[in-house]
Design a protein around this nucleic acid. Structure first.
Lengths: 337, 337
DNA sequence: CCTCTTCCCGAAAGCGCTTTCGGTAATTTG
DNA sequence: CAAATTACCGAAAGCGCTTTCGGGAAGAGG
């Protein structure tokens, strides 16, 4: 493969000139540049990224901290859409993604430390647990950063318009004639969960619907099982809801399961609307009506916000809220008279 | 953060000694090592990975080439399980994963070139298209490599026991009394597809069942739509099968859809068995019976094979075939009399 | 013909770290 | 007590690249 020294020897120029030719400096004539590029091609020369980073202080690498919760990691059906789109967007600008371990030759270190060690140009955190110490540490560092799916006053963030989405859902159910509308919520320690609760409450208030006791149930961390348990609670109520807005598709799947096991039908007996629009809900029965979060858009926005900071080499803080939209499928129906 | 020079200045020792202390060389006394480590902790010293890699020729990074086909990327429901487990396994040994772009400051380059540029210690390719030029190039390089989900004579590979899995599926259907067993296959250009076809044929032969004309249909690249179309072909046959072994869960989902649209039921009218055991099939109706590929095991095996090579700093070629197993759910039933 | 620009090129320092090879001081051995 | 080990430490070269700065040659201007 060779180094610029080899190129210098081969072409007879100095390594300075070789380096300049390779980097399009203008103080090298076209003729010598051509010779050098030719020689480089002949010997399959490739610059060594480590050497470059060392001397330029730029690594062209983005550190990613990805959903660590409950072992799902890259299997996370919503986040993996975001990271995919983020990857695409950053790739076009020449950045590589590095998934760091917290393990440096035995000694374990924090994500921040590892990212500093690797000298990444920026960081993206896609992880909904704002209370995570590691996340906190990253947000307080001075490395360019963008955080997805949670809010923060002192770093760039991008997330969906969760309250608007929740209102959309409630208003849609209302439009179908429903008045007894419950909400299976995600935990409020997660921004998205809290925002959707807020949207639910605002919408109910705007529609002058009181929230009946027991109609707002916290189902924790968005899993199928938790959604199922939450729905069971609703079904046990003296007067169960005719429609429920579920804060996440996975929980909605669990909710539907609970309804079925209770001998009722969706949507004939109970309407269910989810949130996220993950892949699999197109294949369940009934196909889930949901609020779609635009993962492509989110990933791209995150990339944009981060790249800006990295090229400016300074931390900025900008908030980007991505609109959502209702996807009508088959899990909601007009209320039974 | 500081460098070893700062540490040297602060402690009064030479940078040589500092470096040695940090790297547990034994020709530095306990006393001075303690002082240096102390100082390092005080100034939050972190070694610079680029400098280290430059001088040691070891980057502690693994380049990953991940499913590029049809824009799914990290959303691939089977591969993302593998990469997650692979990540876990390599993390414990101190390796980071780097998802490279093929874009180096405008000029585009191959994956191999990019990986050389980044000086990764090893490469993992998780991507089923063996004909991909990029994959070929990687397999022929001299960097330690492990390839998942396809076979090759000249590099380490790990994949599931696809023929055994196919036989398992066919024998299971046979055991339920089925004799008219069809196979919706993945394209033979993909190793997994070809192996499953082979397993299907072997099993049918062993059971002395002739493969009726039209019973073996190539459905291409494992998508829901292709599976659906394939099933439609089967349903148009003069005597349609009573059971079909589908080479992938996504295709099986499509197949079930086709059956339903045809006014028939699964499994009452037609039994369907899938392959992979991806997350979502637990939530469709009916829950899909399938052959589970152990993504955890595959990822771990791949990690092991690669780490061996990287520590030995030499390319090796070993084949690891991971056993599969039948997961019985609700999409298969005894044949109707 | 001389001076002033402009155009090219290269010396050298620096990025932060590792590792070989000696050398001194302290310790052990005969 | 002299000689031979042993224990510690440091100088220096090297990893592959970038970038500042200065200098020579060629062309422009008077």
């Amino acid at each position: 493969m060779g180094t610029i020294y080899d190129l210098a020897k081969k072409t007879g120029f100095s390594i300075t000139t070789v380096s300049k030719a390779l980097n399009n400096y203008k103080d090298v004539s076209e003729k010598t540049r051509a010779k050098i590029l030719q020689a480089a091609a002949e010997m399959d020369y490739l610059p060594n990224a480590h050497a470059q980073s060392l001397s330029t202080k730029k690594s062209w690498a983005i550190g990613v901290m990805f959903s660590e919760a409950n072992e799902v990691g890259m299997k996370h059906p919503f986040f993996n859409g975001i990271i995919e789109s983020f990857r695409h967007a950053t790739e076009e600008h020449g950045y590589d993604l590095i998934f760091a371990s917290r393990n440096l030759r035995n000694r374990d270190m924090s994500y921040l430390e590892h990212f500093k060690h690797r000298a990444v140009d920026g960081i993206v955190v896609i992880c909904s647990d704002r209370m995570d110490e590691q996340v906190q540490e990253l947000m307080q560092s001075d490395i360019p950063i963008v955080v997805v799916d949670m809010d923060s006053a002192n770093c760039s963030v991008v997330y969906s318009d969760n309250t608007a989405g929740a209102r959309l859902a409630v208003e849609y159910l209302y439009g179908l004639g429903h008045r007894a509308i419950a909400h299976i919520a995600g935990d409020s320690s997660i921004d998205a969960g809290a925002a959707r609760v807020k949207g639910y409450e605002l919408a109910m208030q705007a529609l002058e619907l009181p929230i009946q006791p027991g109609y707002l149930v916290n189902a924790g961390f968005f899993s199928v099982e938790e959604g199922k348990r939450a729905m069971e609670k609703l079904l046990q109520l003296p007067s169960p809801p005719t429609a429920v807005f579920v804060a996440g598709d996975q929980m909605a799947i669990g909710a539907i399961e609970a309804v079925h096991e209770h001998g009722l039908r969706v949507p004939e007996d109970i309407s269910i609307i989810g949130y996220d629009d993950i892949e699999m809900i197109k294949y369940i029965t009934p196909k889930l009506t949901t609020i779609r979060q635009d993962t492509d858009e989110i990933g791209e926005a995150a990339a944009e916000l981060l790249i800006e900071q990295m090229t400016a080499k300074e931390r900025r803080t900008e908030r980007r809220v991505i609109p959502v939209r209702l996807i009508e499928r088959a899990s909601c129906a007009p209320v039974k008279k």
